Amino acid sequence: MGISENINEILIDIKKYSPYPEKVSLIAVTKYVDTKVIKEVLAGGAHILGENKVQILTKKQEELIDFPVEHKWHFIGNLQKNKVKYIAHFIDMIHSVNKLSLAQEINKRAKEHNRKIDVLIEINLFEEESKEGYQFTDFLNDIPDLLELENINIKGFMTMAPYTDNEELIRAGFRKLRELKKEMNTLYFNDTLSELSMGMSNDYKIALEEGATLIRVGSKIFE
């Protein structure tokens, strides 16, 4: 199958597996393909593009700036503070806020461009040492300072499941993130948290069943 057929299959899966498909967006992870292929992705109906390296993202953004199909850019990788300035003028969402100092830098750079940037808090739910993300207790400690940042919109949470065949472990983690969003909405965020970024090519169906609103799919689109 081609790219557009694969995208269509994922869009069908969203309707099939999500309890609220109208709230779900597909992020096409384009980190391994060039802008020629990205144009096929956009033509195939996926209009949010996910990248994880700033230098490659800025190059692709410039190459596609005049492309007639409307699209958005999401940053989904580990973001270094000194790289925020290169994407702050155009990025639509940053999925990987994992410390207060990074949130403060995004806020500072957004203010310079008179913007508010949507962000997600990355939580290391599975507590894997190899994965980035806030430890939950650290996030709780930082909430008062995070809420003071006026040029970012904290929209929800992101997590990455471990590489495992244990679907129950994956499902339990995704469910925990959904419950965390509900709890944090009640305690601190006044129901402003709407997004859950979870699920990739190998586990997005489970993520959809557990309430994902953003799924990050790469290899499934290009296989």
Results as ranks from 00 to 15, higher is better:
Leu208Gly: 11
Ala161Trp: 09
Lys116Ile: 14
Gly199Thr: 01
Leu214Pro: 02
Glu122Ile: 10
Met184Val: 04
Asp165Arg: 04
Phe136Cys: 02
Leu208Asp: 08
Arg175Glu: 15
Lys181Asp: 01
Glu128His: 02
Tyr163Ala: 08
Ile170Asp: 07
Asn114Pro: 11
Leu169Arg: 12
Tyr188Ile: 05
Ser130Thr: 14
Glu148Gln: 13
Met158Thr: 01
Phe126Met: 02
Glu210Ile: 09
Asp165Leu: 01
Ile206Trp: 01
Phe139Thr: 01
Arg115Cys: 08
Leu140Cys: 09
Leu140Ser: 06
Met184Gly: 09
Ile154Arg: 00
Asp142Pro: 15
Arg115Lys: 10
Met200Leu: 06
Leu125Ala: 07
Pro144His: 02
Asp145Lys: 15
Ile117Gln: 02
Thr159Ile: 02
Leu147Gln: 15
Leu169Ser: 11
Ile215His: 05
Leu149Trp: 02
Asp138Val: 02
Tyr163Ile: 14
Ile152Gln: 00
Gly156Tyr: 04
Glu168Asp: 10
Phe126His: 07
Arg115Trp: 03
Glu195Cys: 06
Asn166Trp: 08
Leu146Asn: 15
Lys205Val: 11
Met158Tyr: 00
Arg175Lys: 15
Leu177Arg: 06
Thr186Ile: 13
Leu193Cys: 05
Leu125Gln: 10
Thr159Phe: 00
Glu195Asn: 10
Ile154Trp: 00
Asn190Gln: 09
Thr186Trp: 09
Asp203Gln: 05
Ser201Phe: 13
Lys220Ser: 12
Asn190Val: 02
Gly173Pro: 00
Met158Gly: 01
Arg216Glu: 06
Leu147Arg: 13
Ser130Leu: 10
Asp142Glu: 14
Gly156Thr: 03
Gly211His: 06
Pro144Cys: 03
Thr164Leu: 12
Glu167Ser: 13
Glu195Ser: 12
Phe174His: 04
Phe136Trp: 07
Gly211Asp: 03
Ile215Cys: 12
Tyr204Thr: 10
Leu193Asp: 04
Phe189Cys: 07
Tyr163Trp: 06
Asp142Phe: 07
Lys131Thr: 11
Arg175Tyr: 15
Ala161Asp: 07
Gln135Leu: 11
Phe222Tyr: 14
Ile206Met: 08
Glu150Met: 07
Arg178Leu: 11
Lys182Tyr: 11
Lys176Leu: 13
Phe189Arg: 01
Met160Asn: 11
Ala172Thr: 12
Met200Ile: 05
Ser194Thr: 15
Asn166Met: 10
Arg178Thr: 14
Met160Asp: 02
Thr186Asn: 13
Ser219Pro: 15
Leu193Phe: 08
Lys205Met: 12
Glu150Tyr: 04
Arg171Ile: 05
Thr159Gly: 00
Thr192Leu: 12
